[in-house]
Amino acid sequence: MDFDQLKDCMTSQFEEMSPQVQAAARYVLDNVEDVALMSMRQLAKEADVHPTTMVRLAQAVGFEGFNDLKDVFQTRLRAAPDDLVGRARGLQGKKNSTLKLLEEIEQNAHNNIYQSIHGSGAAKLEKAADFLLSAKRVFIMGLRISYPVAFSFSYAYGMFRSNAQLVDGQAGTTADSLRGIGEGDVLLAISVSPFSRDTVRAVRYARSRGAGILTITDSEITPMNGDRTLNLVARNESMTFFPSITASTALVESLIAIMIAKGGEDLLDVVAESRAQLDEFEAYWEVQSQTPPLLFSDKD
């Protein structure tokens, strides 16, 4: 039995499983790498079930014991394409089942967001928001695949605070953008494996100047770790050959929402001023309320 067959079997048998076995099934399908690498007791602890429940799950899908089920996950991990061409080729193998591919993408995005937000937890996300709110200046950096996330945060943050600097490296100006960073400032650095060399250098430079560091990455262990660092982990499992930014985007949206919730009336006044300034430039297309003139009359 290969992984896809196991997944289909587990899905078809799900309704007949006990609630505890269902919880185990949800966990193993949402954490396929962990199943391949962790012991049965570790998995049971993470899934909040008894170790024997893992055995019952394996038996429910036709195996004698848990190790047989684990072998399927390990085979999947060894065979998983880890290069861009291999992952693209894997997608082409699904070309005759677009609906199934889209369903997998939807479920993958949901899992990434759920595990990232709940994995961070409300307390840590609030701590991160307070870290940003307490900063004298906030420097925001995300390059390559992480750039849209960094820009999104910078744009939204700029609607209610004016102390942000987007470090985008345009025209080779990374060093210039970080000039003067120091104590009281915070660098928000967004990067995932393989980590951008410029982002890692920027983090190390900012730390050496006494700035605080808030990172959004795909691991607890990164080359950006160090003193005065708070790290949020964004799950980035992807159906394509690039890491997904869905969870990273959800995390920065969560930080923006928490900061706005803490802002009070003063923040609302700033947002109103920002909108008024955009209106002066007619930044947005507005649908006119009046009836547009007719291009042709009945007499034509």
Rank of each mutant, 00 (worst) to 15 (best):
G158K: 04
D185I: 06
A135F: 07
Y155G: 05
F153N: 04
G182K: 08
F131N: 04
F139D: 07
D185E: 08
A156R: 13
A171Y: 13
G158H: 03
V149C: 06
I181F: 05
D185C: 01
R144Y: 14
A128S: 11
P148K: 00
V167C: 14
A135D: 11
N163C: 09
V167G: 12
L143N: 09
I140Y: 07
G142E: 09
G158N: 15
A164H: 12
A128P: 03
L133N: 13
T173V: 01
S146G: 02
V149N: 00
A129I: 07
F153P: 11
S154A: 14
A128C: 02
T173Y: 05
T174F: 13
T173D: 12
D176N: 01
K127A: 14
P148A: 06
Y157I: 11
E126H: 08
F131T: 08
G184T: 03
L125K: 11
G158F: 03
S177F: 10
N163V: 01
A150P: 08
V186N: 04
A128W: 03
L143T: 12
L178C: 08
D185S: 14
A123V: 11
A175H: 10
Y157R: 06
F151P: 00
L125Q: 09
S146I: 06
S146R: 06
S134C: 10
L133S: 11
L178Y: 05
V149I: 12
Q170K: 11
A129W: 05
R137C: 00
L178G: 04
S154I: 02
E183M: 10
A135C: 10
A129V: 01
Q165E: 08
G180K: 09
Y157F: 15
Q170A: 08
A135Y: 11
F153D: 06
G172H: 10
K136I: 05
L143M: 14
S162M: 05
L132T: 12
R161M: 13
L132D: 07
R179C: 02
D130K: 07
V149R: 02
L166Q: 05
D130F: 00
M159C: 14
